[in-house]
Nucleic acid binder design. Structure first.
Lengths: 181, 181
DNA sequence: TACAAGTTTCAAAAATAAATGAAATCTATG
DNA sequence: CATAGATTTCATTTATTTTTGAAACTTGTA
């Protein structure tokens, strides 16, 4: 079972992008491969398709499971484990988003909070705290908004988009309405 | 000029997070250091503060400039170059966001577009194209929304947030209004 | 234009991350 | 409960990324 040229190109691209999205090349490839492959695949099929070792696939699977991006499936009478994406593209994107927030925003927020609780003891610390406060605000804002957006379905988002109206306009509209109340 | 313990911890943390944000440890540290330091710094001051080589600083500066995150300043009668953040926290975050979009979303979109233009030549390709189409839609949606959000000032965002209203509510509101029109 | 202060470059070294594959472990079934 | 098929682990190897530092380069000044 060999990948077509186009499909192979896509899988390799997922590899390149993999590290950007928080995992390594191989894991990116595995993820891409499972997404474009209709039927669930065994670990050996994955290893063959990507020309990587069986052990590497095993580690990749563990990692993808920790991101909740893939699920295990079984075929009656077959002892092998089959893997498939856990949900549709939208679900997967949400998981990646959520997980990254947990890994890269939350630790920073907690460090900043700690830092901001302490009394600054000199000019350098006063300035630094001011800046850290700004970062803290930014991250809180981004976090809150992203969870609001994640709550919406792709349909809701697309619907809005197709109305040809930017969020800026929506907000203006809301402002006007609130003033009237 | 030594960093206080708190400030040092922050700078090191920026290093850890650096790679997540698209650059390496040292560059993350440099960025953090310049952000919490009131006065512009010379390359040598940066090298000393972080205990890294002068050459490394030079490369880091180049990279941070390519992200438009720092600017060069001069002090009359002093031949050295001084570096400072190019803008406030919000500006910098926007730049990073923008740059990452360029580096990690746009190449993918263009690959997907190419792939989707071709006629699928068998079942595997048909399914793969369906999935790629989904990813394409998702990325387009995310891209559009993020540029809408970036257009807003932090004040606008905060104001809205403080009204205690989620974007979901805003959208509902908009829907109702549109129906009346 | 020669010099010195400052900056950049880049080949080589060091550090880090990822992949391999053989051995250990797990597990369904006769 | 022994075994064969399957999966996981992890020490070692391999590949990649980052850092160093000496040499080359740039530039303002005497």
């Amino acid at each position: 079972m060999t990948l077509s040229e186009k499909n192979f190109a896509f899988v390799m691209h997922c590899g390149e992008m993999g590290s950007r999205w928080g995992f390594n090349r191989t894991i990116g490839q595995m993820c891409g491969l499972l997404i474009i492959t209709k039927d669930p695949m065994t670990a050996n099929q994955i290893a063959d398709a990507l020309s990587i070792s069986r052990g590497n696939v095993s580690m990749g699977i563990k990692e993808l499971q920790s991101w909740q991006l893939i699920k295990v499936m079984h075929i009656p009478g077959d002892r092998k484990e089959y893997y498939a994406p856990a949900g549709d593209i939208w679900d997967m994107a949400n998981r990646v988003f959520e997980e990254r927030k947990k890994r890269e925003v939350e630790p920073t927020l907690s460090l900043l909070r700690d830092n901001l609780l302490d009394e600054a003891s000199n000019d350098d610390e006063i300035y630094a705290q001011k800046q850290m406060g700004e970062i803290h605000n930014l991250l809180e804002t981004v976090t809150k908004w992203s969870s609001e957006l994640q709550r919406l379905t792709p349909e809701q988002l697309n619907k809005l988009m197709k109305l040809g109206s930017g969020i800026g306009k929506v907000i203006d509209l809301k402002d006007k309405i609130l003033k009237k109340m």
